[in-house]
Structure formats: C-alpha cells, structure tokens
Amino acid sequence: MDLYPLYNSLRIAAISAMIVFFAGIACAYYIAKLPRVLKGILDVLLTLPLVLPPTVVGYLLLLVLGPKRPVGSFFLESFDIRLTMRWWSAVFAVSVVVFPLMYRTARGAFEQFDENLADAGRTLGLRNSYIFWRIRIPYCKQGIIAGAVLSFARALGEYGATSMIAGYTPGKTATISTAVYQLWRTGNDELALKWVLINIAISAVVLLCVNLLERPQRRKG
C-alpha cells in the first residue's frame, strides 16, 4: 500500500495549521481593537470560508492563483513557479478553509481575558510584547490550543477546495480525502475502505485531544 497520501495529507495539514495558528491569533487580537463597523465587516469576511461550500472557495482561489490569472501568471512568469496543481497548492486551499476555525476560537479565548492584567503589566513597566506572550497567551492557552488542534483536524479532512486547486495526481498531489474519492470512483473499494479507516482513526485521536484540552479550567483570580 502506497502511503504517500497519508504523508502528503499530514504535511499539508501541519503547514496549514501552522500558518492559520499565527494568522488567526494575530487577526483575533488586532481586529478586536478596531472600531465597531470595520470589525463587523472584517469579521464577516474572515468567517465566510467557514460557511461557503469548499468548491466555491476553490473556485475563488483559482480566479486569483490560476496560471492565467493575475497572481498566478505573475509567479509563473517571474519565478517560473506554478501555484496550482502542486502538492503545496493544497496549502492555500486548506489554509483559507480552516482559517475561520482558528480565528473564531482565538477570538473567543481573548474575550475571556481579564484586561486588568494587561493594564497592571503596563503600569509595572512591562513591554507590550511581553504582556502578549507571557500574560495574555498563557491565560488564553486552553482555547488557543484547542483551536489549533481543531484546525489541524479540519485541515486533514479538506476535500473540495483541495481537489480543485491541487487535483489528484498519485504520488504528487494525492491526499487521503482525494484518494478515497478516486479509489472509490475507479472501483477499488477495498483500498478506499482502508483509507477511510485510517482517516477515522486519525480524526478520532485528534478530537480526543481536543476534549482533553477542553476539560474544566482550574483557574480563578
């Protein structure tokens, strides 16, 4: 059995989860400080991929990254890099689809933060970056880690946008989800079932981690 789809899925999910982790935290932190109207608009825009069909996200991405489209043709002509139909093309798709999960969990976690702690830190002369990394993030860590794990889990399962932007090339762009579809379509039910079971096992382990992380907090005051 060729394990390439497992390897490819794991690296795409890991890279995407990493990107989304930092981008989601940064957006959650800075957007919370914006004026109300702007905040509302950005919030809708950034959450949209969560409710849109992944094929719509894939279509929109192809509009931008496709070889004849603005960004895509720029990269192709200037650097001879094709942005679609490579294994890492899936990273674009997965990151966009998964981003709202991290963004919203991080925002929820930040909203629980006791702002007095940041104010106390500032009057004590602590740098804002210190307050962010050593006080705010540790305080919100449970929510943030849960968001990251959930993003990773969702990233592993992304199919729609990935299939549009990276396609299915065995040994190149194949992921677990695209492999299952192709194997089933070509009548290879036995192998498809193996991948289904592998996928269920990984997802169950990840969700178990989320549950363990979301156990009641021990903190107060």
């Binding site: 006791d114 007095n116 702690l117 104010d119 106390a120 830190g121 009057t123 006080i135 540790p138 305080y139 903190r219 005051g221």
Partner: peptide
C-alpha cells in the same frame, strides 16, 4: 504603582 481592586496578579 496601581493596586487593583482584585489585585490583578498574573495567574500563570
């Protein structure tokens, strides 16, 4: 120096 009502100690 600001002594907060609930002291605002860093819980972690």
């Amino acid at each position: 120096g600001y002594l907060f009502q609930d002291y605002a100690l860093f819980p972690d």
